[in-house]
Design a protein around this nucleic acid. Structure first.
Length: 486
RNA sequence: GUCCCCAUCGUCUAGAGGCCUAGGACACGCCCCUUUCACGGGUGUAACCGGGGUUCGAAUCCCCGUGGGGACGCCA
C-alpha cells in the first residue's frame, strides 16, 4: 500500500431526492475523510436504466451541496479515476466481465426469467434458500458463444465458490457467511448492462477506495463482492456496515412515515446544521459525554468509526424539531434572518419593503417561538398585519371591566406621544406610556397588561410589549388602539 | 421459510467486569424566571428483553430462547 490516506465514497443511485438515510451515509463518509485527511469521492450508480435519470442525479447533487458537502472526485468535478458515472463506464465493466468468462469464472446463462421465478417460488416454499440451480453451468464456452452470436438472449453469471467467507466489519466485527449462502449471481444483464454487485467491486477497486461505509442493507451483498475480489485477486477494502434508520413503528424509514428526503426538510424550514447534528447522533455518539449540540468542525474533529452503533435507530422528528429550534436561536441573527427570507416571502410578509436592520430586530423578537423557519411568517404577521382580529383565547380579555378604560387611555397616551415625538418609540418610552395608562385607568397587573396586549396585537401571548411595540411604531400602535376601541 | 445482523428509559444514547442506587438529551409532569406566552433554569416519572452459565462480582463475557430488522432480483 502506497497511499495510507483513506479514500471513501458515497455512491447514490439517482432515483429521487436524497433520503435522510443517504444523507447520514454521506455525512459519515465525509466526516471520516475530513477527520483522517483522506479523500471523499462521489460516484453515481445509474445502471438501473428504468429508474435512473439525469434529473434525479441533479436533485441529489443539489441536496448534497445544500448540506454543505463537497467532494474531491466525482461527476462535474472530475478526477483521475473517472468517469464517475457508472453508465459511462460500461466499457470497463465489459472488459472485466470478459476476463472472468475467459478464465471460466463466469458463464452465459440462457434461462428465462419466468423459469427462474418459478424455481425461486418453489425453493422458498420448500424452505430452501432460493438460488440459481446451475442449469447453464455445463454449457461449454464455445457453445455459449455460438448461441450468443446467433442472437440468443443471455445473462452472464458469476460462478460462486462453495466455501465460507469471513468478513471483518468495522462496525460489526467478525461476520461469517456460510458456504452456499448465495448461488451463481448475475453480473451482466441481457443486453450487457452490468449489475450493482459487480460494478461496485470494479469501481471501488479501480477508484482505490480504502473504506466502504454503507448501510446495513448491503451486508449480505458483501459476500458476493468478496467472491469477486477473490476472483480478480484484488485486495479487499475495509467494510463498515452502518445500522439502518427506522420509522416510529421500527420498520425501515419510508415515505409513509412522513418526510424522508433532505429536500423536504429544507423546504419545511429546517437548517442544514440542525439536520446534520441530528443525523450524526443517529448511530454515532460523541466521545464527549453529554454533548449533543456540536458544530461541523467538532464533528470532524471527534468522528471515529469505533463509536458507530450497530443497532438500528428510530428517526424521531420531534427531537429534530427541537434541535432545529436550538440552531435558529443560536445562529448569528443576520444569517438566520437571511435564511428565513424565502419563507417570509412565501408567507406573504413584504420583506422587501422594510429595512433589513428593522427586519432583523423583529425576527430576533420572534426567534424563541420558532421551531422551523416555516413558522416565521405566522409570528411575523404581528408586525405587518393591521387587520388582525382577536384570537379565540384572547376574547375573554375584552370582557374585562378595565378593558375600555385601559385602551382609551392607551390610545390617548400614544397619540400624545405621536404629536410630541412622531413615530419613533423606544422601549423605555413605551414603559412610561404604560405607567400613564395605569394612572389614568386605575387598572393594574393582569387587568392592565392584557388589555394593552390584546388591543395592540389581538393575541393573549407574545413577545415583551416593550420590544414589540417600538418595532410597530407609535403611529401604527395608536391606530391599532383606536381600532380596538371601535 | 433460509441465512445474516441487532437488543439499556416511549425515542436517541452513555456505559468496554467492580466507578451503576445505571448518566445525558428529546418528549411528558411539577416548580422558578417572565405582571403574558415562548426562551431559559431547576426538578420528577421512566430502562439494562427472558433463561441459563463464566466470575468473589455482570448492563458489560459465553450459550439458548424471544423479539425486531435486513438479505435472498436481469434494484441499488
Amino acid at each position: 500500500m502506497i497511499s495510507t490516506k483513506p479514500r471513501v465514497r458515497f455512491a447514490p443511485s439517482p432515483t429521487g431526492y436524497l433520503h435522510v438515510g443517504g444523507a447520514r451515509t454521506v455525512l459519515f463518509n465525509w466526516l471520516y475523510a475530513k477527520n483522517t485527511g483522506g479523500q471523499f469521492i462521489l460516484r453515481v450508480e445509474d445502471t438501473d436504466q428504468e429508474r435512473s435519470t439525469r434529473e434525479h442525479e441533479r436533485m441529489q447533487l443539489e441536496d448534497i451541496k445544500w448540506l454543505g458537502f463537497s467532494y474531491d472526485e466525482g461527476p462535474e468535478v472530475g478526477g483521475p479515476h473517472g468517469p464517475y458515472r457508472q453508465s459511462e463506464r460500461l466499457d470497463v465493466y465489459a472488459k472485466c466481465a470478459g476476463e472472468l468468462i475467459a478464465n471460466g469464472k463466469a458463464y452465459y446463462c440462457f434461462c428465462s426469467e419466468e423459469t427462474l421465478e418459478q424455481k425461486r417460488q418453489a425453493a422458498m416454499a420448500a424452505g430452501a434458500v432460493p438460488q440459481y440451480d446451475g442449469t447453464c453451468r455445463g454449457i461449454s464456452q464455445a457453445d455459449a458463444k455460438a448461441r450468443v452470436g446467433k442472437g440468443e438472449k443471455a445473462v452472464v453469471r458469476f460462478l460462486a465458490k462453495v466455501k465460507d467467507y469471513k468478513l471483518d466489519d468495522l462496525v460489526r466485527g467478525e461476520v461469517l457467511f456460510p458456504a452456499n449462502m448465495v448461488g451463481d449471481f448475475v453480473i451482466l444483464r441481457q443486453g450487457g448492462m452490468p449489475v450493482y454487485n459487480f460494478c461496485v467491486v470494479i469501481d471501488d477497486h479501480l477508484m482505490q477506495i480504502t473504506h466502504v461505509l454503507r448501510a446495513e442493507e448491503h451486508l449480505s451483498n458483501t459476500v458476493r463482492q468478496m467472491m469477486l475480489y477473490e476472483a480478480y485477486g484484488w485486495e479487499l477494502p475495509r467494510f463498515g456496515h452502518m445500522s439502518l434508520i427506522l420509522g416510529s413503528d421500527r420498520q425501515k424509514l419510508s415515505k409513509r412515515h412522513g418526510a424522508t428526503s433532505v429536500h423536504q426538510y429544507a423546504e419545511e424550514g429546517y437548517l442544514r446544521e440542525a439536520l446534520l447534528n441530528f443525523l450524526v447522533l443517529l448511530g454515532w455518539s460523541s466521545p464527549t459525554e453529554n454533548k449533543e449540540i456540536m458544530t461541523i468542525e467538532e464533528m470532524v474533529r471527534d468522528f471515529s468509526l469505533d463509536r458507530l452503533n450497530p443497532a438500528p435507530g428510530v428517526f424521531d422528528p420531534v427531537k429534530l424539531k427541537w434541535m432545529n429550534g436550538q440552531y435558529i436561536k443560536a445562529l448569528p441573527l443576520a444569517d438566520v434572518t437571511a435564511r428565513a427570507l424565502p419563507f417570509l416571502e412565501k408567507g406573504g410578509i413584504p420583506v422587501a419593503k422594510v429595512e433589513r436592520a428593522w427586519l432583523e430586530r423583529a425576527f430576533d423578537a420572534i426567534r424563541p417561538y420558532l421551531e422551523t423557519l416555516a413558522d416565521a411568517p405566522k409570528h411575523m404577521r404581528l408586525f405587518f398585519d393591521e387587520t388582525y382580529g382577536v384570537e379565540p383565547d384572547a376574547v375573554a380579555v375584552k370582557a374585562e371591566p378595565t378593558y375600555a378604560a385601559v385602551v382609551t387611555a392607551l390610545r390617548d397616551a400614544l397619540k400624545t406621544h405621536v404629536s410630541a415625538h412622531g413615530d419613533a418609540l423606544t422601549g423605555d418610552e413605551f414603559g412610561k406610556i404604560q405607567d400613564q395608562v395605569k394612572t389614568a385607568s386605575g387598572a393594574k397587573g393582569k387587568g392592565l397588561f392584557m388589555p394593552i396586549r390584546v388591543a395592540l396585537t389581538g393575541h393573549a401571548h407574545g413577545p415583551d410589549l416593550k420590544i414589540l411595540i417600538p418595532l410597530v411604531g407609535a403611529k401604527r400602535a395608536a391606530a391599532r388602539a383606536e381600532k380596538a376601541l371601535g
